[in-house]
């Protein structure tokens, strides 16, 4: 795996809300085709990191290099056409638009909607096709999550950012959705996954980073992290 090229790299990233530092200099790298997860408790800075990658927040210092471009210098609306798209925390689907309208908005930056991608999204999540004329706000939580992921895929991204796709979902749904995330990665999409559900995330991901109050405290392959006492204690609820 290490011989694969690093093509997405965060270096010494710092982000603050006013005088409060949320991210205090983190660095991480993602290789092509990997699933990398960022674990951490509430308030660790996971969502802040994701929002900064998509430039919804501006970094105070550091860089986010992707294909030779520093994303911190790119305006938010240009990030998607660079090949980085996000399914945000809390799904943020457009509730009063239909499922299909949501998906088509995901392809907003495309000159022409890629029908193949739409077909693929419907294959990944058949429920979305069944409900394509329904308003997104009337979907269940799990379906909304599928829609958020599908919407992010519609721009044919190279890097897919997933912010807590398991949030508020029943375990069986988490399992189903994570299975499809593996499927997405198998198609060559690199996935950066932020999760509180460490167990599910590490079972899926190749490697992981553990974030704690704005700093990376631990990193390794998923197997290493699963075995690590620190992770077991803090995130998997095992006492030693």
């Amino acid at each position: 795996m290490s011989e694969r090229e690093v093509f997405f790299e965060i270096k010494d990233l710092e982000v603050s809300y006013g005088s409060i530092d949320a991210i205090k200099g983190i660095s991480l790298e993602v290789r092509k085709g990997e699933i990398v997860t960022i674990l951490g408790a509430n308030g660790a800075g996971k969502t802040t990191t994701m929002r900064t990658i998509s430039q919804l927040l501006k970094a105070k210092a550091g860089s986010i290099m992707f294909k030779g471009v520093d994303l911190t210098k790119v305006p938010a609306h240009k990030i998607v056409s660079m090949g980085v798209s996000q399914s945000p925390e809390g799904r943020r689907v457009f509730g009063i638009l239909t499922v299909e309208e949501n998906l088509l908005l995901g392809a907003y930056t495309q000159k022409k909607v890629n029908r193949e991608t739409l077909k693929w999204v419907y294959e990944l999540f058949p429920r979305l096709e069944e409900r394509r004329k329904q308003l997104a706000g009337t979907l269940s939580g799990g379906e909304q999550q599928m829609l958020a992921i599908g919407r992010a895929l519609m721009s044919d991204p190279e890097v897919l950012l997933l912010d807590e796709p398991s949030l508020g979902l029943a375990p069986i749904l988490v399992k189903a959705i994570f299975k499809q995330i593996r499927e997405i990665a198998n198609k060559g999409v690199t996935v950066l996954l932020v999760e509180q559900n460490a167990k599910a995330a590490l079972q899926l991901a190749d490697r992981g980073y553990v974030l704690d109050v704005g700093k990376i405290v631990l990193t390794g392959t998923s197997a290493e992290l699963l075995a690590s006492e620190k992770v077991q204690e803090a995130y998997l609820g095992k006492k030693h």
Binding site: S54, H77, K78, P88, R92, F94, I96, G106, Y108, S155
Partner: peptide
């Protein structure tokens, strides 16, 4: 509906 979500679609708000 949601300006940040719109930005994530690549819309120049």
């Amino acid at each position: 509906i949601d300006q940040d979500a719109a930005r994530l679609m690549g819309i120049n708000v």
